[in-house]
């Protein structure tokens, strides 16, 4: 995966709580190979009308947010299905960080594995960022992973927590499986302890 460190970009708000991964990537695109541009399927059924025309007031269709690289999400963003394709859709669209008060657990895990930050900030901080994005659409905010900060267009700085292992993986673009297999001896020792059958 591509390393990620600092992002400075416009932020597009999705204020609703509980936006699920079925919304982000409808199930009928789940059989598409990873090489497909999943950005085309992103929010397909809410971004486009059944006839394929753009839904005018959908955030991603508004002129200033077309190039946004950061998503501001409502609480419990990307809950539901474990489909990693939801991350691929956001990533292929160009999104490199999602900031929300909370996430669906599986989405947050999937996000890290694909080089996209899932940043938890307090609800009032996310609300402030969203208000700013609405007031000045397209205004750039900054995400600094080494410093673990988000800086609003107006200059307010918030610190965020991130799992140290996830941070390292993102900064280095770490191949987690290759890393794990450096511990193959430990895994083999565990397997010898439990035997081949049941644990």
């Amino acid at each position: 995966m591509e390393p990620v460190s600092r992002i400075r970009a416009g932020a597009v708000p999705f204020a609703r709580a509980n936006i699920d991964t079925d919304q982000i990537l409808p199930a009928r695109y789940l059989a598409r190979p990873r090489d497909d541009n999943h950005g085309e399927y992103l929010f397909r059924d809410v971004r486009l009308a059944p006839d394929g025309s753009e839904v005018e007031d959908f955030p991603l269709n508004r002129p200033h947010w077309r190039e946004a690289r950061i998503v501001l999400g409502g609480a419990n963003f990307a809950c539901g299905s474990s489909r990693e394709n939801a991350v691929w859709a956001l990533y292929d669209h160009g999104i490199r960080a999602v900031i929300a008060p909370s996430f669906g657990d599986i989405f947050a895990n999937n996000s890290v594995k694909n080089g996209m930050l899932a940043i938890v900030l307090p609800a009032d901080a996310v609300a402030e960022l969203m208000a700013e994005a609405e007031a000045e659409p397209g205004a750039e905010i900054s995400v600094d992973l080494p410093a673990q900060t988000v800086t609003s267009a107006g200059g307010t700085v918030w610190q965020f927590d991130i799992d140290p292992f996830a941070k390292r993986s993102l900064l280095e673009g770490l191949d987690e499986l290759a890393f794990t297999l450096t511990h193959a001896d430990d895994i083999a020792a565990f397997e010898r302890r439990i035997g081949r059958g049941n644990s």
């Binding site: 599986i106 999937n110 594995k113 694909n114 297999l181 895994i187």
Partner: peptide, 20 residues
């Protein structure tokens, strides 16, 4: 528990998962 595709590949390749 449920996992994503990259984690499925990780389990196939190592029979393990990193978890907090």
């Amino acid at each position: 528990f449920g996992i994503g595709a990259t984690e499925v590949a990780h389990v196939l390749g190592s029979q393990t998962l990193w978890q907090r």
